[in-house]
Amino acid sequence: MKINKNLIVTDTKPGDDWKFDAILSEMTGLRWTVLDGGLQYKLGNTREKLKRYINFLWFPFRLFLGRKKVKNLIAWQQYYGLMYAFYCLLFHAKKENYCMIMTFIYRQRKGFLGYLQKKMIAKIVNSKYVDRILVYSQSEKEYYQRILGATKFFSAKLGLEDLTIGIEKQNRGDYILSAGRSNRDYDFLIHALLGQEHQVRIVCDALPAGRNENIRIYDNVYYEKFFQMIADCYCVVIILKDSEISSGQLVILQAMQFAKPVIVTESKAVMDYISDGQEGFIIPKDEQSLREKIDLLYNDKELYNRMSARARESYEKNFSMRSLGKQVADCFERDMRENCGKEN
């Protein structure tokens, strides 16, 4: 494992268009390098899941062993940052570096095991080994501060590299697309749209592949194949299970990149990414509202075209990788100034 002074750790190898390290280097004046954990995104079978869990334990431990070589650590994969801090706590290590954890998502579980998990997460995020934690909405920041008692959270708008490059463009396909794994309610979606006139395609590796009337489920579609499905769809629908949990932003932005209107159920977090009636619709979680908005998009071509154009425009203006890099760089430099002030 080659460890450098200013390190960004990811679970998978970033694509050529990612460039977050170059953006951060430009904006902070430091040379940032990327170290990936060697994982593949697909989680289609038990073996892949087991490899991922082992990696989440072993890779951060290797970081821990090389911690004296690192001055600044940004964990793009949250579990790398959390487990790194856990090992520092476990071995009562001297604090050697600045650590920022990105893309933090925590869903509180029920029962005694859920209680223990919450205690452990709270101990880690409140430890001296974690300096800053990034979340992707203001409501999410307030929620985690309340349940974990930590003041280290800061909110930023998620940013993505342009995934449309190299994907064959199709202005308007004929099917509805739903995708993602975290906090999705596919039972609701299937019940609402089964037997309806429009074709529906669901991409989720946590569901068994299959077909039932107008609904088809894919459990092994990733990267370019998935991006092509977004390019070929008519619109994107996201049904969230728990409105308190921040999720869905990634697929929302992917849809916006390809100029696809989005229909998403109400959540405080999604309001930072989509305006109702502009890039799509934010709806209450009821089947009639969902079917009405779908019919409206299919029947009102002027509205559809306006939302499509607005979606792409919003991505370019507010949610690029450069925009995310600037937010992270600004936070990092504020923390550096505060740390210098404390030392002086």
Rank of each mutant, 00 (worst) to 15 (best):
M336T: 02
D272P: 06
M1T: 08
D16S: 12
A192D: 02
K5P: 00
L207G: 01
Q288A: 09
D131A: 00
Y218W: 15
R31G: 06
T28W: 06
M120W: 15
M321I: 10
S289N: 01
G114D: 01
Y222L: 08
Y53D: 09
R67A: 05
I23Y: 06
E244Y: 11
T28H: 08
G277T: 11
F227L: 09
R334K: 14
L290Q: 00
Q77A: 14
L303Y: 06
V130M: 01
F226M: 14
R337W: 07
I74L: 15
R132D: 07
A179D: 04
Q199K: 15
G66W: 14
R211E: 13
W76H: 15
T164S: 12
Q199G: 08
C204T: 12
I165M: 06
R312N: 03
F281V: 02
N45I: 02
E338P: 00
I167H: 07
H198I: 09
N299A: 14
F64P: 03
K326V: 01
A192S: 12
P60S: 01
V135M: 09
T46E: 08
G210C: 03
D242Y: 11
A150N: 11
L250A: 07
Q196K: 15
D242F: 07
L148F: 05
A150Y: 08
A93G: 02
L30E: 14
I124N: 02
R312A: 02
N318I: 12
T151S: 13
D174S: 11
N214P: 03
K2C: 10
N305W: 13
N6S: 06
L89M: 13
F227C: 05
L82C: 05
M27C: 08
S314F: 13
Y234A: 07
N45K: 04
E96C: 08
M83N: 10
Y98T: 09
E287Q: 09
V236D: 00
F258Q: 07
A192L: 08
I147F: 04
Y98I: 11
F64D: 05
Q278A: 12
L250H: 04
Q327M: 08
K157D: 09
S247F: 03
R291K: 08
H92C: 07
E142C: 04
K225T: 12
Y298M: 06
T164R: 11
N220Q: 14
A75C: 13
A85V: 02
G195A: 10
K118R: 14
Y80A: 08
Y106P: 02
A156L: 15
Y304I: 03
Y79K: 15
Q117S: 11
D11Q: 14
M271E: 14
L30K: 15
S289H: 00
K169L: 11
I176M: 05
K241G: 02
Q78A: 10
D187F: 12
Q138K: 11
Y175I: 12
R172M: 12
R52Y: 03
A269M: 10
I74G: 00
I274W: 08
D162H: 12
L194K: 15
L50I: 13
E140R: 12
K71Y: 13
L113C: 01
G248C: 06
I3R: 14
C88S: 11
Q288P: 02
F226E: 02
L193Y: 14
V251H: 07
F332A: 01
S320P: 00
A85R: 06
D276P: 01
F332S: 01
L193A: 05
E292D: 03
